[in-house]
């Protein structure tokens, strides 16, 4: 496997993803929404075993546009969202970042791996792990997320999904 790496670009993209992780862990969800383009897609397929192979379990459990993503964020802001009352403590660890050219000149395809620990109340917790495939687009000198696929390594979700990856 030989490939030439654009280290400058890789460092820039990594920095973007790390900053994004901190925004999520600080629960600045409106700021997080600003990181998405207006035409963004956010998908979370689940897995199942089909005759020995890991395959998508039908329709993704989440298949959002930016408006639907906004709905999820605003639901928590109503003050009545029990599943986020009190708010979850999360720690997003992002690694294994690989950056490739995207379909458009101002876009890149980014693979990364994540581990997310979600802690709630006194002792409730969930561990989430998987890989993300992002399409980032350069907008006004910065990066925005135009598409995110979150591939959770789970056939059975450890709890209902009420946090973001």
């Amino acid at each position: 496997m030989t490939t030439s790496v654009n280290w400058e670009l890789k460092r820039e993209v990594e920095d973007f993803l790390y900053r994004e992780a901190h925004i999520l862990d600080e629960h600045r969800l409106e700021d997080w929404l600003d990181l998405f383009t207006e035409d963004a897609e956010y998908l979370v397929p689940l897995r199942e075993y089909v005759q020995g192979d890991v395959a998508p379990a039908g329709h993704p459990v989440i298949k959002d546009d930016k408006q639907m993503l906004t709905v999820r964020v605003r639901k928590d802001a109503t003050g009545y969202s029990h599943v986020e009352t009190p708010v979850s403590m999360t720690c997003h660890l992002i690694s294994n970042v690989v950056v490739d050219e995207g379909p458009e000149p101002d876009e890149v395809e980014v693979l990364s791996a994540f581990t997310v620990r979600q802690a709630r109340k006194l002792r409730d917790e969930a561990w989430w792990a998987g890989r993300r495939r992002d399409r980032l687009r350069r907008v006004d000198g910065g990066w925005k997320i135009a598409r995110r696929e979150v591939h959770l390594d789970a056939t059975v979700l450890p709890r209902g999904i009420a946090i973001f990856f």
């Binding site: 979370v44 329709h59 459990v61 709905v71 979700l157 209902g160």
Partner: peptide
């Protein structure tokens, strides 16, 4: 599209039920 957004493990309805059971 709609039914997965609602009463579903990753929707905006079912997770609040799960929280009550917890």
């Amino acid at each position: 599209q709609r039914v997965y957004q609602g009463q579903h493990g990753a929707g905006v309805i079912a997770p609040d039920d799960v929280e009550n059971f917890e």
